[in-house]
Amino acid sequence: MSALENYRAALCRLIENKPQIVPKGSAINKDTVALEAGRKRGSIKNSRVSNASLIAEIEAAAVVQQAQSKPTSAQEVKKQKSLKKAAQERLDNIRDDYNIALMKIVSLAHENHALQQEIKHLKKELQRRNVIKIR
């Protein structure tokens, strides 16, 4: 098997995500294809005319892999930031609702206390009026 055939076989294994040497899920590029073919990193060079079609195949496979792959770390970071922002806004809304509820509770407790004091005062007043003083 020639070197070019080895490279193409390695590229096929990487495309199918069934590599024998490099880890699964490795990015497809000239170095990983070379390593998967059992060669040294950098053995596939642009300067060699015999590698021109192989390099084109590798670049095409890399584009396809990137299109199919999970979001990049930058996209993931952006997504996480937007999720964090949405969660923070929701938390702020919940805190606002909580503070409003607390203010209502305090207001009702104050009003309840004032009404209880008024009831006490009225009961005393009623008792005082109903009591006849005998001299």
Results as ranks from 00 to 15, higher is better:
R129H: 05
K78A: 14
N93Y: 14
L102Y: 08
N112F: 01
P23N: 12
E5N: 09
A87W: 10
H110S: 13
A27F: 02
G42V: 10
D92A: 14
K30L: 07
E16M: 09
H113K: 14
I55V: 12
I119F: 04
H110E: 15
A86G: 01
E111M: 07
Q117D: 15
K104G: 04
E118M: 07
N130M: 02
D92H: 10
R41G: 04
L11W: 09
N46I: 04
A3H: 02
I119D: 12
K124T: 09
M1H: 06
L102E: 14
A114C: 08
A37I: 04
R129D: 03
I94L: 09
Q20G: 03
Q117A: 14
R135T: 03
L35T: 05
K84Q: 12
I134G: 03
R95Q: 10
K79P: 00
Q66T: 08
E89T: 13
E5G: 04
K81A: 10
L11R: 06
L11V: 11
R129P: 00
P23V: 08
Q80A: 08
K30G: 09
I58C: 02
N29D: 15
E36K: 06
K120M: 00
Q66W: 07
N6Y: 01
N46F: 14
D31G: 04
I105Q: 02
K24R: 15
S73T: 06
H121Y: 08
N130Q: 12
I119T: 13
A87F: 06
I134F: 13
L122G: 02
L126M: 06
I15D: 01
G42C: 11
Q65H: 03
Q68S: 06
R48Y: 13
H121L: 04
L4I: 15
K124G: 04
N6S: 11
V106Y: 05
T32Q: 05
I134H: 08
A101W: 08
K104Q: 15
Q88Y: 11
Q127P: 00
N51Y: 15
S53K: 15
E5H: 07
